[in-house]
Deep mutational scan, measured.
Amino acid sequence: WLKDDEATHCRQCEKEFSISRRKHHCRNCGHIFCNTCSSNELALPSYPKPVRVCDSCHTL
């Protein structure tokens, strides 16, 4: 799980985070992405409801 202060850019699109481009953790891989690159939800065994995942984890 990557800490918020360790990420300054989206792991996928590499756009810089700002007040309007917020950080979101993928609940599967733990990396930090922008909203555009992590707008999917997936049912994971460790969560009772579908949770936010990055595009890469969603296509696995």
Rank of each mutant, 00 (worst) to 15 (best):
W1M: 15
W1Y: 15
W1V: 12
W1E: 09
W1R: 08
W1G: 14
W1N: 15
L2N: 12
L2D: 12
L2F: 10
L2W: 05
L2R: 04
L2H: 07
K3I: 04
K3A: 02
K3F: 00
D4N: 11
D4T: 06
D4I: 06
D4F: 07
D4Q: 07
D4K: 10
D4V: 05
D5A: 07
D5S: 07
E6A: 10
E6D: 10
E6R: 05
E6W: 04
E6N: 09
E6P: 07
A7Y: 10
A7S: 13
A7N: 07
A7H: 08
A7R: 11
T8E: 10
T8L: 12
T8K: 11
T8W: 09
T8R: 12
H9K: 10
H9D: 05
H9Q: 06
H9P: 01
H9E: 04
C10Y: 01
C10Q: 02
C10R: 01
C10N: 01
C10W: 03
R11I: 13
R11P: 11
R11H: 13
Q12C: 13
Q12V: 07
Q12Y: 06
Q12P: 00
Q12E: 07
C13Y: 00
C13T: 01
C13R: 01
C13S: 00
E14M: 07
E14Y: 06
E14F: 07
E14I: 08
E14V: 04
K15T: 08
K15D: 07
K15V: 05
K15H: 10
K15N: 10
K15P: 00
E16I: 11
E16Y: 05
E16R: 04
E16T: 05
F17L: 07
F17M: 03
F17R: 02
F17Y: 01
S18T: 13
S18L: 04
S18P: 04
S18Q: 06
S18V: 06
S18E: 08
I19P: 11
I19E: 15
I19V: 09
I19Q: 13
I19H: 11
I19A: 08
S20L: 08
S20M: 10
S20A: 13
S20E: 14
S20G: 14
S20H: 09
S20P: 10
R21C: 00
R21V: 11
R21W: 00
R21K: 08
R22M: 14
R22I: 09
R22F: 07
R22H: 00
R22D: 09
R22G: 08
R22P: 05
K23D: 05
K23M: 09
K23Y: 02
K23Q: 06
H24S: 06
H24F: 05
H24G: 03
H24Y: 07
H24N: 06
H24K: 07
H25Q: 14
H25M: 13
H25Y: 14
H25E: 11
H25A: 14
H25G: 14
C26W: 01
C26G: 01
C26I: 00
C26Q: 00
C26F: 00
C26T: 01
R27L: 13
R27F: 14
R27W: 09
N28R: 08
C29Q: 00
C29M: 00
C29K: 00
G30F: 00
G30T: 01
G30D: 04
H31R: 09
H31Y: 09
H31T: 04
I32L: 11
I32A: 09
I32M: 14
F33M: 04
F33E: 02
C34V: 03
C34S: 01
C34H: 03
C34F: 00
C34Q: 03
C34T: 02
N35L: 15
N35K: 14
N35D: 15
N35F: 10
N35Q: 14
N35G: 15
N35E: 15
T36C: 15
T36E: 15
T36R: 15
T36P: 14
T36F: 15
C37I: 01
C37W: 02
C37S: 03
C37H: 05
C37R: 03
C37G: 03
C37F: 02
C37Y: 02
S38G: 10
S38C: 11
S38Y: 02
S38A: 14
S39R: 11
S39V: 08
S39L: 09
S39F: 05
S39E: 13
N40I: 07
N40M: 11
N40D: 04
N40G: 11
N40A: 08
N40T: 10
N40S: 12
N40Q: 12
N40P: 04
E41Q: 11
E41Y: 09
E41D: 08
E41P: 04
E41M: 09
E41K: 11
L42W: 11
L42Q: 15
L42E: 11
L42S: 13
L42V: 13
L42G: 11
A43F: 04
A43M: 12
A43Q: 12
A43P: 12
L44S: 03
L44W: 04
P45R: 12
P45H: 11
P45Q: 14
P45M: 10
S46F: 12
S46R: 14
S46M: 13
S46N: 15
S46K: 14
S46H: 12
P48V: 07
P48L: 06
P48A: 08
P48M: 05
P48I: 04
P48W: 03
K49R: 12
K49D: 12
K49E: 10
K49F: 05
K49V: 09
P50S: 06
P50I: 01
P50E: 10
P50G: 09
V51P: 04
V51H: 00
V51S: 05
V51R: 03
C54R: 06
D55E: 15
S56R: 15
S56H: 15
S56P: 15
S56L: 14
S56A: 15
C57P: 01
C57N: 00
C57E: 01
H58S: 08
H58F: 09
H58A: 09
H58M: 09
H58W: 12
H58Y: 10
H58K: 10
T59N: 10
T59V: 14
T59F: 07
L60G: 15
L60F: 08
L60V: 07
L60P: 04
L60C: 02
L60Q: 14
